[in-house]
Structure formats: structure tokens, C-alpha cells
């Protein structure tokens, strides 16, 4: 690990002032479950690490009676797991995150901003996984965990966030603080596919931080997250789906959001699959059809066709789970 300066601000204003203007100069530290291994493996080599944990106002979780939630970026993943029934998609996604230790150390903001698990990236070949001569390593390499959707560009990694699909399904907004003050983006627009290895996978400026996630009222929303993993243990799911539905009086679907996780460089909103449910009563067949549509445009790399099947099954089962 290279030497770095360590700053521990107590306000968000101080924090953003301490963050550098370009990526790589500084890194923000929250739970540290990802940053520490990135530092040890020299994947990031900041001159300064800015610890956000001293900013107490970012840790709160508020769930007013209107069924909404305001989740501070520093709230633990375990706190999200405890949110309960109205936020089923979120708490189920949180429950899937490996160990109790990680759930207690890891933060919600950290889950959204963690770097991809792509093993080429983790071995120092960059976000776009290229060797010294610029050859792409994923297409002919070991790509069994790589993207099946949104993989026609150079980025083949999958977004590693477990909570993001649930937040997007629940129409959450992400509050961001920077030198110019506060701004808000839809969770769905927070994630971007980088075009170069020097970009990041999210819509933050280098000197901005996530402060809060606002989940609008979930009253009447039926939601669920279903993950499929290789039953390996400290890993990320192979595919996951978060679903949020509202039903009318006759139990027909009024609105639907379906978001896939771990299948594309960004959480993948399956618009057509969600539309297919509108006006229908949820059944095994309707759910399976949505599952098929969700992966209709999927494109397998040489070794990850299995993930297409899993993503489809995850969508089907998340839908059934949401209404069960």
C-alpha cells in the first residue's frame, strides 16, 4: 500500500473540500470493505483518503408513516435489512449480502459505489479489462461472471451493487452533495457505463459524495428481490432481480418495475418485461413470460450463457415472491 494522507472530516462541507477534483487523487472511505482491498492491491493509489464516518448526519434511517424512507449513505446494510415488510425488495437484497460482518461494516452508499468484482479489473487490467497491448481480455477469457446485457461496448463487467436494483425498482432518488451544494438524481440514472478506464461507473463528480437515498412511499407496493448464486459463500449473486408492483382492486397489475442486477455494467431496467405485466393477474405463466422478455436481448459471451437462464428465472421468481 502506498502512503496517503488520512483526513477525517465531521461535516459534508469539509469532506467535499478535502476530495480531489479528478479521479484517483483521493478516495472516500465509508465501511472500507471494498476500499481497503483496492488499496492493498494497488488498484487505487490515492494521495489522500477521506474518512466519511465522522459525518454523523449521514447515518440516520428515517421511515415516516407515509411509507417512504430516507436512508443515510452511511447507514449500515444491516440497518436496511431491518427495514421490514414495506421495503421487501430492499431488505431481501440486503439479506443476500454475504456475511453479518460485511452487513454491519458495509454502508448503503458504499454498496452503491463499490467497484466491480470483475477479476481482470481486480488483477490490475483496468475497468475495460485490456492487456498491455490494448487487447480486450474478457471476450476470449474467463467471462462466466461477466455481462449478458449491455455488453456490446467495451465494458463487460457487471455492476456489483445488491441494493441498486431494489432502489431503482422502488423509484428511489439519490441525494448527492458537492462543492456546489446538493443535487438529486434518480437511482436509475446514478449508474453509467464507462467509456474509458479512467471513468467511474457512477454519476458522481470526484469531489461529490452520496448523502442520502430517498425511497418514495411504498404504501400499496409489493416488492421482492430474488437472487441466484452458485451457493458459493462470500460471493456476489450470478443474477438477481428486484421487482416492485402495484395492483388494482381486481388484483391486476397497475404499475410494474423490474430491475436486474449483476447482469450488465449498470443495474438493468427491464422495461418491456415490466410492461408485459400491466393489466394482468400475476400467474406462473405471466411471470415466466416477463422473465423471458427480460433476457430477450441478452447476448451471451463465450462462457456465461447460464446467466441468461438464471436472470430469467430470477425475474420470474421475484414477481411470484412479490405477490405471495
Amino acid at each position: 500500500m502506498h502512503k496517503f494522507e488520512y483526513a477525517s472530516p465531521t461535516t459534508k462541507e469539509q469532506a467535499v473540500a478535502l476530495l480531489g477534483k479528478s479521479w484517483g487523487e483521493t478516495e472516500a472511505l465509508a465501511g472500507g470493505t471494498d476500499l481497503l482491498s483496492l488499496l492493498k492491491d494497488y488498484l487505487v493509489t490515492p494521495k489522500r483518503v477521506v474518512n466519511l464516518k465522522g459525518i454523523k448526519e449521514l447515518s440516520s434511517v428515517l421511515t415516516p408513516r407515509d411509507g417512504s424512507a430516507r436512508i443515510g449513505a452511511l447507514a449500515s446494510i444491516e440497518a436496511v435489512r431491518d427495514l421490514g415488510r414495506g421495503f421487501a425488495a430492499l431488505s431481501q437484497a440486503a439479506a443476500g449480502i454475504t456475511s453479518p460482518q460485511i452487513r454491519n461494516m458495509g454502508t448503503v452508499g458504499g454498496d452503491l459505489c463499490q467497484r466491480p468484482r470483475c477479476w481482470y479489473f481486480r488483477s490490475g487490467f483496468g475497468l475495460l479489462a485490456k492487456d498491455e497491448s490494448g487487447n480486450a481480455l474478457v471476450p476470449n477469457g474467463d467471462n462466466r461472471y461477466h455481462a449478458i446485457l449491455g455488453n456490446d461496448g467495451e465494458a463487460k463487467f457487471v455492476n456489483p451493487s445488491s441494493l441498486a436494483p431494489a432502489f431503482i425498482a422502488l423509484n428511489a432518488k439519490i441525494k448527492i452533495f458537492g462543492p456546489a451544494g446538493e443535487r438529486e438524481v434518480e437511482a436509475a440514472k446514478f449508474f453509467v457505463t464507462p467509456k474509458s478506464a479512467s471513468e467511474r461507473e457512477y454519476a458522481l463528480q470526484p469531489n461529490e459524495i452520496v448523502t442520502m437515498i430517498h425511497v418514495p412511499s411504498t404504501l400499496g407496493v409489493r416488492s421482492a428481490t430474488y437472487e441466484v448464486r452458485q451457493r458459493e459463500v462470500l460471493d456476489w449473486p450470478l443474477a438477481a432481480a428486484s421487482v416492485a408492483l402495484t395492483l388494482d382492486a381486481s388484483k391486476k397489475v397497475k404499475t410494474a418495475r423490474i430491475v436486474l442486477g449483476h447482469v450488465a455494467p449498470v443495474p438493468w431496467v427491464a422495461e418491456e418485461a415490466a410492461q408485459s405485466l400491466i393489466g394482468k393477474t400475476i400467474s406462473e405463466d405471466a411471470a415466466a413470460e416477463a422473465g423471458r422478455l427480460a433476457v430477450a436481448n441478452a447476448h451471451a459471451l463465450s462462457r456465461n450463457a447460464y446467466k441468461i437462464q438464471l436472470a430469467s428465472v430470477a425475474v420470474k421468481r421475484a414477481i411470484l415472491q412479490a405477490v405471495s
Binding site: 477479476w119 474467463d142 451457493r231 459463500v233 462470500l234 460471493d235
Partner: peptide, 27 residues
Amino acid sequence: FEEVVYDENGQLLTGELMDYAVPKAHQ
């Protein structure tokens, strides 16, 4: 679950608990 995997270059692909699956109690 478990398998130590080396690739054709003798690189250890299962070099940490993220890639080498030890079961948890609930499994």
C-alpha cells in the same frame, strides 16, 4: 463447493475465499 483451480499458466485462480467456496453453516 470446493476446488483449487490453477490455470494453464499455473496461476492460482482460487486464491481467496471469494473464489474458493467454503460452506457456511446455513448451507
